[in-house]
Nucleic acid binder design. Structure first.
Lengths: 344, 344
DNA sequence: TTGTACGCGTTATCAT
DNA sequence: ATGATAACGCGTACAA
């Protein structure tokens, strides 16, 4: 025992009557080891409550047992769901999660990331949208030798580097639902430029209208930036158009809430006078009035899978050994609540 | 230069023509150093772009340059605000943030935390409510030698270990506002048992009523657990009472949103038939209808101060040197929106 | 004011 | 299958 109180590999070796290296082999599950020796060492380890020192391992391996969460996402709930999913995957492992927000748009963004990855010697990073849509970010990880998994609304990398949802299909389905309720004048509140998710969702919307042969005049499209306020503004713009749209698809829930707000301020009733669908199924969706029909993507599950991909092969695989391949594509579903009604 | 590509302290020492120790002194701002030597070494450092290896430092110092965020908080927005404040304080320093959720209520909770702190050798931890309300958690940090700062709704530790808000006073003020609008039958939706914040807020509510000589019958108090659903249930209970309350104070915004929901389902108009005040000023407060009058506590600022307390003295103090003492008490303010009206 | 030698706890190399 | 010895990069006695 050292003065710190924690037993070290030396203590284990001494007491077990073997060399440090043998203990190290036990820890790292080296295949070439006598069964008896291994049992003896493991007994001492359990006895002493020995746990390898992460700092020393990091130094020797030149690699830290940290998984980074790199994001530049304005939506708090989304980030929290990702963290929850990651931590679920990391629970019980030797890995910890370190969070690193990035300033997309800053010219030094890439350098910041490089410094972070090089200095901390991360085991791997989970790249959230929208930063992860930048290919040079992925290339940087590759160059540095840091594992990475990107998370996004569309597949933009190989399966081991990607967990994706099917935003386009999902929005197409949501829009078809609107059409099935008889709506023909349907407005779109688009997401911000530069967000791949915004593009995918818009494409899905256009897909559905085109297939149904429903016109989409320019006036039925308003730009938003995923915030509540932009939803209010865009909603007002759409509601100014005559004849008014009878339904609106907003590219996320915040903006959908904004539209409801705008509608109510003009004395319009939702869903009687205006049907609304959002995207994300954040808590606000279920808590506003009327409860919002929206698209839910399994964000925590995606993050969990992403983290599992990152640590697979690098962690102690305690289970039977037959590692199940983590999925790369996740399906979103339409959650029907009370913000959609048949057209009058 | 080593094979990793990163220059080490040895490279700097060799090129500058000094010993490792001298370089180490420069890095750690040792006072006893020749000006000329320091300048020369610093030149080489800048030249090489040398950055001390955190893993090696962690090993030698037996202390990692990581700040932990330990929480068991059900509210996503609160946690995100804390993270934002922490990261703001940590930006530009050598510290990173690692997040660690805890399962309060689990019998192994304290052991989990101990393992985490001992293994990772954290520089310090920010303890969020409600876990931080448990004194043994703080004692554990002390025993292990890990710096800590607690965050809470009331002062429960010395200033260097605490950032607190004045929940009781704030709620008292909010309730007085309700009274000033003529309300006399005011309901309370309490927070969950075991949350100190719930207790403080309730006390503030009772303070105001008592001082005004307004009765608080047991029927005007409903229990909640800080969730939307519990707010709905509690709201229904309160609205069943005859005569109905004309106003309700909910101990957080989620529950306040639930009350609005419950009121609307009975055809009641907010604020005409029922005034409501919440607490937290989460995004939902501004986004529901009607916009919610609520109490805002400066959560990000508190977290920022907390992180600053944690790293003060331990970090490179780049500024002039006269460190400003971080505050320990933060004032909450009433945000008046549209969910309160004078009594009919 | 500066340098030497060693410790921190682990993994890797190359023996045996 | 196992062990001696050297990295890994930095901090600290102690000496000079």
């Amino acid at each position: 025992m050292q003065k710190t109180g924690q037993p070290t590999i030396n203590d284990v070796a001494r007491i077990a009557g073997v060399s440090k290296k043998t203990v190290s082999r036990v820890i790292n599950r080296s295949p070439l080891l006598g069964d008896e020796t291994r049992a003896r060492v493991e007994a001492v380890i359990g006895d002493l409550g020995y746990i390898p020192n992460p700092q020393a391992r990091a130094l020797a391996l030149r690699r830290n047992f940290l998984i980074g969460l790199v994001h530049d996402n304005p939506n708090a709930q989304t980030v929290m769901n990702v963290q929850q999913g990651m931590l679920e995957a990391l629970r019980g492992t030797e890995f910890e999660m370190v969070v690193r927000p990035l300033d997309r748009g800053s010219p030094t963004m890439l350098d910041d990331l490089r410094h972070f990855l090089e200095r901390q010697r991360l085991f791997g990073v989970l790249l959230m949208p929208p930063v992860c849509e930048n290919d040079s970010v992925a290339q940087l990880c590759d160059a540095i030798g840091c594992r990475y998994v990107r998370m996004g609304s569309v597949t933009l990398d190989t399966p081991e580097h990607m967990v994706a949802s099917n935003d386009r299909e999902a929005v197409r389905g949501a829009t078809e639902y609107l059409l099935s309720q008889g709506h023909r004048r349907i407005g779109l509140i688009a997401g911000p430029h530069g967000f791949r998710s915004a593009r995918e969702r818009r494409l899905g919307f256009e897909d559905a209208l085109a297939e149904a042969g429903v016109a989409l005049p320019r006036s039925m499209i308003a730009d938003g930036n995923y915030t509540f306020d932009s939803g209010v503004t865009a909603g007002e713009r759409l509601l100014d158009v005559m004849p008014r749209p009878t339904a609106v698809f907003a590219c996320n829930d915040e903006m959908a809430a904004g539209v409801i707000h705008a509608a109510r301020q003009r004395g319009l009733d939702v869903p009687r006078d205006l049907s609304i669908i959002g995207f994300d199924d954040t808590p606000i969706a279920a808590h506003i009035w009327p409860p919002l029909t929206t698209v839910r993507w399994p964000i925590a599950s995606m993050a969990r899978s992403a983290a599992l991909k990152l640590i697979s092969g690098g962690a102690e695989e305690d289970d039977g050994g037959d590692t199940v391949e983590e999925p790369s594509l996740f399906l979103s579903t339409l959650i029907r609540r009370a913000s959609v009604a048949p057209v009058a």
